[in-house]
Amino acid sequence: MKLSSTGYLIKEGFKNVWNNRMMSLASVAVLISCLIITGAASLISLNVSSLIAAVGDDNELTVYLKYELSDTDSVKIGPQLKKIDNIEQCRYYSKEEAIKQYKDTLGNVYESMQGDGNPFGNAYKIRLTDLSKYKSTVKQIKQIDGVDSVSDRSEIAGKLTKLNYFVTLVGFWVVLVLGIVTLFIISNTIKITMYSRRFEISIMKSVGATNAFVRVPFVIEAMLIGLLAGLTASGILIALYNPVKDAASGIVNLIANSTIPVEQLWLPILVSMSVIGMIIGILGGLISITKYLRKEGGEILGW
C-alpha cells in the first residue's frame, strides 16, 4: 500500500461504517457489553487483590508439628520450611510459648501443664508471599516429616481470594462467550458491507487492485467499530467506578482505604479498552475479509 492512498482508504473505511450504520451500531453495542464486563471483572479483581495485599499483613498461619516430636527435631524443621518458595517469613513457636498465652486463663492448672504436662506441640508461625497459592503451599508443608497440620488462614483473606477466583472464573467464561458472539457479529457486519460493495470490489479486481488494497477499508471499518466500542466502554467504566466503589464500601467497611483510586486507573482503562476493542474488531473483520478475498478467479461478477 502506497502512502498516497492512505487518505482515500481511511475515507472509504469511514464510509463503510456510515453506509452500514445499523449493523455497525449493533456490533458496537455488543462489543461495548463485552468490554464493560471484561473491564468490570478486571477492576474488581484488581481491587480485591489490593485488598488481599492489605489484609495479608494479619495473615499469619500456624504450622503445628506432631506432638511427640522432640524440641531438637522441631528446630530442624525450620530450615525445611524456609526452603519453600511461597513462605515469606517463618518463626519458631515453641510449646512453652504457646502455653504461656493461656497462663491467666488457666490459673493454678498452668503450673501442672509445664514440661511433660504441656498439651501443646511445637509449632511455626509463617507468612505466605502469595496467598492465592495457599493450597499448594500447605500441601508442600504437609509433606515435611513431623508436620501435623496447618491452621486456616485468616478468614477475610480466604473469602477475598475465593471472591477473586470466582470473579476471574465467571469473567473469563462470560468474556469468552461474549467475545465469540462479538467476533461473529463484527464479521457479519463486515460481510454485509463487503457484499453490498461487491460490484465495486469486482471492478477493483478487474483493474488490478491487490487484495491487500481491497482489504484496507474493511479493516479500517472493523477497527473503527472496535475503537468506538472501546472508547464508550471505558467512558462508562470510568464514570461508574467511584459510585460503585462507594456503594461497595458501605457493605464492607474495609474497602474504602485499600482500593485503587480512579485517578490511577482511568488512563489504563481507556488505553486497554480501546486497544482490545480494536483488536477484536480487526479479528472479526479479518474473518470475513479473508474468506471473501480467498477465492481465485470468478472475481469479476456476472461476466
Binding site: 502506497k2 498516497s4 492512498s5 469486482s202 483493474v207 487492485a209
Partner: peptide, 23 residues
C-alpha cells in the same frame, strides 16, 4: 460496469486510486 453512485470523473479515477496512484 460503471459505479452508479460515482460521477464520470470518479468512475475513471477509481481505476487509478485503487492501484495507489497519487491524486
Amino acid at each position: 460496469r460503471l459505479i452508479d453512485k460515482m460521477n464520470v470523473y470518479d468512475n475513471v479515477a477509481f481505476a487509478m486510486r485503487v492501484i495507489g496512484t497519487p491524486e
